[in-house]
């Protein structure tokens, strides 16, 4: 597997290249998309992007965990976590693209 990492910079570049937006506008729009996704999730909404995947917020109740290093018991406070379920298309493409 390669070690490359795609960041905001490459997404900005893709909008510049594919859509022909200016670099500034590309970067504003990437930011805007990420902000809308985040805001909806923080508001507790499920975000469903067809042919990409679904982001869902799950409420976790308090539980007793352990510090894996010391073995000491600790209370894990209730929290909200995000779970992502890839679409069929993403699953297929990731699976096909990485099989040798």
């Amino acid at each position: 597997m390669s070690e490359k990492t795609l960041t905001r910079m490459e997404l900005n570049e893709a909008l510049f290249r594919e859509v022909g937006l200016s670099r500034n506008e590309s970067s504003d729009l990437v930011e805007s998309v990420l902000n809308h996704l985040s805001d909806a999730l923080v508001a507790g909404e499920t975000v469903k992007i067809s042919s990409f995947g679904t982001f869902k917020v799950c409420d976790k109740t308090e539980r007793i965990g352990r510090n894996p290093k010391t073995g000491e018991e600790a209370v894990i406070t209730p929290r909200r976590v995000l779970s992502f379920r890839p679409s069929h298309l993403m699953k297929e493409r990731v699976s096909a693209g990485n099989s040798d």
Partner: peptide, 30 residues
């Protein structure tokens, strides 16, 4: 097209075995 391009690029990167790191939002990996 803009929204589609963003999500397509993320899938393309992962299909190539790459990682996608969007600071503050999250990271996609294979």
């Amino acid at each position: 097209r803009i929204v589609g391009t963003i999500f397509d690029e993320i899938i393309n990167a992962m299909a190539a075995g790459d990682r996608v790191e969007l600071r503050g939002f999250g990271a996609f990996s294979v």
